[in-house]
């Protein structure tokens, strides 16, 4: 069992990673031509050079780069993510308002994808090279290779426009402004289509990984031993094969958290889901540095924690793995 000291050490180790990411992205963004003042002027329609200079000064863009970086790092160390000049709001407030919807979508998708993927993957492995296997393989690859925006739009056409079962987009019904339990139901109703669209994409990965993994484990010596001990096939699979086969799946799930966290840009765009991915995407093209770095910072912290959790899961699934 991993000790508390281990967890704390891992968290301490994460600090430089987080800072390195902030610095890397900060420097990368410096390479991008144009700045926030250009964008604001572009949107506002026009601006005098004096006004632009004043904007840059109030954004701190007139400072030398290294000073901007130092000031930013100083802020971040105290968990102050700064101010988004574009939105006229503190970055933390903006991120917090999007974190809930993001986690909701991400959690739902990951749970669905892992659960259904493991189920289909083991099913395919059990029926290796028979029609069930082929059907599952074909369908999951089909789902995976379909461009997400196309799948999303087709689901909207079918389930919203033609059948009228689900709303096209958004997170709540704006004509109603539900409260209490009705609001929860309303949000769940809006969640269905985006979650399904994204799950379809991630499903294939887990199903295929699980299938390969089950097959690999099933051929291991310990399984042969277990069979020889006279355990039933069902017991072998459940107690030994599935447990070990979950390892790569858990690894992948850990990896995917980071991806889904900000990688749902397309689904968020199609379904107007108020997630962080879309916010980050918009802030990149608006050169809203504080906001974009803030999102990178938060997502970094989140993934660090998830990776830790994955490693902890490892040691529970396979006690032979030492946590050092």
């Amino acid at each position: 069992m991993p000790s508390l000291a281990y967890v704390l050490r891992r968290l301490a180790q994460a600090v430089p990673t987080v800072l390195a990411i902030v610095v890397l992205n900060f420097l990368l963004l410096q390479l991008a031509p144009g700045d926030a003042a250009d964008v604001l002027a572009g949107e506002a329609g026009s601006a005098t050079p004096e006004y632009m200079a004043q904007l840059r000064k109030s954004f701190g863009l007139d400072q030398p780069m290294w000073l901007q970086l130092l000031l930013y790092l100083k802020q971040v160390v105290t968990f102050d993510l700064g101010f988004s000049f574009r939105h006229g709001m503190p970055v933390s407030e903006l991120i917090l308002s999007r974190l809930g919807p993001t986690l909701l979508l991400m959690g739902t998708v990951l749970t669905l994808a892992v659960f259904v993927g493991v189920l289909l993957g083991s099913l395919a492995a059990r029926h290796l090279n028979r029609w069930q296997d082929n059907l599952i393989s074909t369908l999951t690859v089909l789902a995976y290779a379909t461009p997400v925006f196309w799948a999303g739009l087709m689901l909207i056409v079918l389930f919203s426009v033609k059948l009228g079962w689900f709303p096209t987009s958004g997170m709540q019904k704006v004509a109603a402004f539900h409260e209490g339990f009705a609001k929860v139901k309303d949000i769940a109703h809006h969640l269905v289509l985006p979650a399904v669209t994204l799950t379809l994409f991630y499903l294939a990965l887990y199903a295929r990984l699980m299938r390969a993994s089950v097959l690999e484990q099933a051929s291991m010596d310990y399984v042969v031993t277990a069979r020889a001990k006279g355990l039933t096939e069902r017991q072998v699979i459940r107690r030994h094969v599935l447990r070990n086969a979950m390892l790569p799946v858990v690894t992948m799930a850990g990896v995917q958290v980071g991806a889904i966290f900000g990688g749902a840009v397309v689904v968020e765009t199609v379904f107007a889901w108020p997630g962080l991915g879309l916010l980050a995407y918009e802030s990149l093209f608006a050169r809203d540095l504080n906001l974009l770095l803030g999102i990178f910072f938060v997502s970094t912290c989140l993934v660090v924690m998830v990776n830790l959790a994955v490693d902890l899961c490892y040691s529970m699934l396979d006690p032979r793995i030492e946590l050092r």
């Binding site: 990411i21 890397l24 980071g258 966290f261 840009v265 993934v303």
Partner: peptide, 22 residues
């Protein structure tokens, strides 16, 4: 740590960032 560094950055967004910059 290096892997984490590249992996915590939302990958699609990071690809967009790289293309936007480069």
């Amino acid at each position: 740590r290096l892997t984490e560094l590249f992996q915590t950055i939302p990958f699609f967004l990071f690809a967009i960032l790289l293309v936007a910059v480069l």
